[in-house]
Protein backbone atom coordinates (compact mmCIF):
# COMPACT_ATOMS: atom_id res chain seq x y z
CA UNK A 1 0.00 0.00 0.00
CA UNK A 2 1.67 3.24 -1.11
CA UNK A 3 1.75 6.40 0.94
CA UNK A 4 1.27 9.20 -1.57
CA UNK A 5 3.26 12.36 -1.03
CA UNK A 6 4.53 15.36 -2.86
CA UNK A 7 7.93 17.02 -2.79
CA UNK A 8 8.18 20.59 -3.99
CA UNK A 9 11.48 22.23 -4.79
CA UNK A 10 11.17 25.82 -3.61
CA UNK A 11 14.40 26.68 -5.35
CA UNK A 12 12.93 25.93 -8.73
CA UNK A 13 9.44 27.23 -8.11
CA UNK A 14 8.84 30.70 -9.50
CA UNK A 15 5.30 31.00 -8.18
CA UNK A 16 3.73 31.30 -11.61
CA UNK A 17 0.45 29.78 -10.46
CA UNK A 18 0.20 27.26 -13.27
CA UNK A 19 -0.62 24.58 -10.71
CA UNK A 20 -3.52 26.69 -9.49
CA UNK A 21 -4.98 27.22 -12.94
CA UNK A 22 -4.43 23.61 -13.95
CA UNK A 23 -6.24 22.40 -10.84
CA UNK A 24 -9.19 24.66 -11.55
CA UNK A 25 -9.48 23.39 -15.11
CA UNK A 26 -8.88 19.74 -14.34
CA UNK A 27 -11.19 19.53 -11.34
CA UNK A 28 -13.79 22.11 -12.23
CA UNK A 29 -13.08 24.04 -9.04
CA UNK A 30 -15.61 26.87 -8.84
CA UNK A 31 -14.24 30.33 -9.51
CA UNK A 32 -13.38 32.23 -6.36
CA UNK A 33 -12.26 29.04 -4.64
CA UNK A 34 -8.84 27.46 -4.57
CA UNK A 35 -7.79 23.91 -3.94
CA UNK A 36 -4.19 24.93 -4.28
CA UNK A 37 -2.46 28.27 -4.08
CA UNK A 38 0.87 30.07 -4.03
CA UNK A 39 2.44 31.43 -0.86
CA UNK A 40 5.35 33.82 -0.88
CA UNK A 41 7.15 34.07 2.42
CA UNK A 42 9.79 36.70 2.93
CA UNK A 43 12.13 36.60 5.88
CA UNK A 44 15.17 38.58 6.83
CA UNK A 45 16.39 42.05 6.26
CA UNK A 46 16.29 44.40 3.34
CA UNK A 47 17.82 44.40 0.88
CA UNK A 48 18.19 40.79 -0.04
CA UNK A 49 15.90 38.92 2.29
CA UNK A 50 15.07 35.30 1.61
CA UNK A 51 11.98 34.54 -0.37
CA UNK A 52 10.44 31.12 -0.25
CA UNK A 53 7.77 30.46 -2.85
CA UNK A 54 5.56 27.51 -2.19
CA UNK A 55 2.75 25.84 -4.03
CA UNK A 56 0.43 24.78 -1.23
CA UNK A 57 -2.58 22.51 -0.98
CA UNK A 58 -4.09 19.96 1.36
CA UNK A 59 -1.23 18.14 3.05
CA UNK A 60 -3.03 14.81 3.17
CA UNK A 61 -1.80 14.45 6.71
CA UNK A 62 -1.17 11.03 8.14
CA UNK A 63 -2.85 12.30 11.32
CA UNK A 64 -5.57 14.50 9.86
CA UNK A 65 -7.55 16.58 12.37
CA UNK A 66 -10.17 17.33 9.70
CA UNK A 67 -11.00 13.64 9.47
CA UNK A 68 -11.13 13.21 13.22
CA UNK A 69 -13.53 16.05 13.83
CA UNK A 70 -15.98 15.07 11.10
CA UNK A 71 -19.28 13.97 12.69
CA UNK A 72 -20.51 11.97 9.71
CA UNK A 73 -17.41 10.31 8.37
CA UNK A 74 -17.63 12.35 5.18
CA UNK A 75 -14.00 13.30 5.63
CA UNK A 76 -12.02 10.13 5.48
CA UNK A 77 -8.67 8.65 4.64
CA UNK A 78 -8.96 6.86 1.36
CA UNK A 79 -7.90 3.24 1.12
CA UNK A 80 -5.40 4.04 -1.60
CA UNK A 81 -2.33 6.03 -0.73
CA UNK A 82 -3.58 7.64 2.45
CA UNK A 83 -5.29 10.40 0.49
CA UNK A 84 -7.70 12.48 2.57
CA UNK A 85 -11.00 12.83 0.76
CA UNK A 86 -14.49 14.22 1.36
CA UNK A 87 -17.64 12.36 0.37
CA UNK A 88 -19.90 15.18 -0.68
CA UNK A 89 -23.09 13.22 -0.12
CA UNK A 90 -22.20 12.60 3.52
CA UNK A 91 -21.05 16.15 4.34
CA UNK A 92 -23.48 18.29 6.31
CA UNK A 93 -21.47 21.49 5.89
CA UNK A 94 -20.78 21.97 9.60
CA UNK A 95 -17.38 23.51 8.78
CA UNK A 96 -15.68 21.88 11.75
CA UNK A 97 -13.06 20.53 9.36
CA UNK A 98 -12.35 24.03 8.08
CA UNK A 99 -11.72 25.14 11.63
CA UNK A 100 -9.69 22.03 12.39
CA UNK A 101 -7.30 22.32 9.47
CA UNK A 102 -4.22 24.33 10.44
CA UNK A 103 -3.38 24.86 6.78
CA UNK A 104 -6.65 26.40 5.67
CA UNK A 105 -6.77 23.83 2.90
CA UNK A 106 -10.51 23.37 2.83
CA UNK A 107 -13.37 25.49 1.68
CA UNK A 108 -17.09 25.15 1.35
CA UNK A 109 -18.10 24.39 -2.21
CA UNK A 110 -20.97 26.60 -3.39
CA UNK A 111 -23.08 23.45 -3.39
CA UNK A 112 -22.65 23.28 0.37
CA UNK A 113 -20.11 20.60 1.08
CA UNK A 114 -16.51 20.84 2.18
CA UNK A 115 -14.09 20.53 -0.71
CA UNK A 116 -10.35 20.29 -1.08
CA UNK A 117 -7.47 18.82 -3.02
CA UNK A 118 -7.83 15.13 -3.87
CA UNK A 119 -4.27 14.64 -5.10
CA UNK A 120 -6.13 14.19 -8.43
CA UNK A 121 -6.88 10.63 -7.43
CA UNK A 122 -8.76 10.12 -10.70
CA UNK A 123 -5.53 10.81 -12.57
CA UNK A 124 -3.28 8.99 -10.14
CA UNK A 125 -5.37 5.87 -10.52
CA UNK A 126 -4.63 6.01 -14.26
CA UNK A 127 -0.93 6.28 -13.57
CA UNK A 128 -0.75 10.01 -14.25
CA UNK A 129 0.65 12.71 -12.01
CA UNK A 130 -1.79 15.15 -10.40
CA UNK A 131 -2.66 18.00 -12.74
CA UNK A 132 -0.59 20.53 -10.82
CA UNK A 133 2.50 18.33 -10.99
CA UNK A 134 2.02 17.45 -14.63
CA UNK A 135 1.69 21.04 -15.75
CA UNK A 136 4.45 22.73 -13.74
CA UNK A 137 6.81 24.42 -16.18
CA UNK A 138 9.64 24.50 -13.66
CA UNK A 139 9.39 20.81 -12.82
CA UNK A 140 9.50 21.76 -9.19
CA UNK A 141 7.00 19.16 -8.01
CA UNK A 142 7.54 15.46 -7.61
CA UNK A 143 4.75 13.08 -6.73
CA UNK A 144 4.99 9.50 -5.60
CA UNK A 145 5.12 6.94 -2.85
CA UNK A 146 6.73 8.17 0.33
CA UNK A 147 7.38 4.64 1.51
CA UNK A 148 9.16 3.47 -1.62
CA UNK A 149 12.83 3.71 -0.68
CA UNK A 150 13.91 3.87 -4.31
CA UNK A 151 11.12 6.14 -5.48
CA UNK A 152 11.74 9.73 -6.53
CA UNK A 153 10.07 11.21 -3.46
CA UNK A 154 12.17 9.31 -0.98
CA UNK A 155 15.34 9.90 -2.92
CA UNK A 156 14.78 13.64 -3.06
CA UNK A 157 14.03 13.77 0.64
CA UNK A 158 17.11 11.75 1.42
CA UNK A 159 19.38 13.93 -0.67
CA UNK A 160 18.13 17.45 -0.07
CA UNK A 161 17.34 19.53 3.01
CA UNK A 162 13.60 19.95 3.35
CA UNK A 163 10.86 20.98 5.70
CA UNK A 164 7.17 20.42 6.10
CA UNK A 165 4.70 23.10 7.13
CA UNK A 166 3.68 23.38 10.78
CA UNK A 167 5.15 20.06 11.87
CA UNK A 168 4.49 21.28 15.42
CA UNK A 169 0.78 20.96 14.76
CA UNK A 170 1.41 17.23 14.89
CA UNK A 171 -0.56 16.36 11.79
CA UNK A 172 2.25 14.60 9.91
CA UNK A 173 1.80 16.38 6.60
CA UNK A 174 2.73 14.55 3.43
CA UNK A 175 3.92 17.53 1.42
CA UNK A 176 7.55 18.43 1.73
CA UNK A 177 9.40 21.52 0.62
CA UNK A 178 12.98 21.27 -0.54
CA UNK A 179 15.05 24.28 0.36
Amino acid sequence: MPRLAMVIDTRRCVGCGDCVVACKVENDVPLGHDRDWIVEEIRGRCPGPTLEIRSERCHHCADPPCVYCCPTGASHIHDYGGVVLVTASKCIGCKACLAACPYGARFIHPDGYADKCTFCLHRVEKGLDPACVAVCPTHCMTFGDLDDPLGPVRRLLDSRPHHALLPEAGTEPCIFYLT
Binding site: G17, V20, V21, P137
Partner: peptide, 8 residues
Amino acid sequence: RLCPRGTG
Protein backbone atom coordinates in the same frame (compact mmCIF):
# COMPACT_ATOMS: atom_id res chain seq x y z
CA ARG B 1 4.14 22.05 -20.18
CA LEU B 2 2.31 25.29 -20.74
CA CYS B 3 2.52 28.35 -18.56
CA PRO B 4 -0.48 29.42 -16.43
CA ARG B 5 -1.80 31.59 -19.21
CA GLY B 6 -1.68 28.76 -21.68
CA THR B 7 -3.38 26.43 -19.23
CA GLY B 8 -5.93 29.13 -18.52
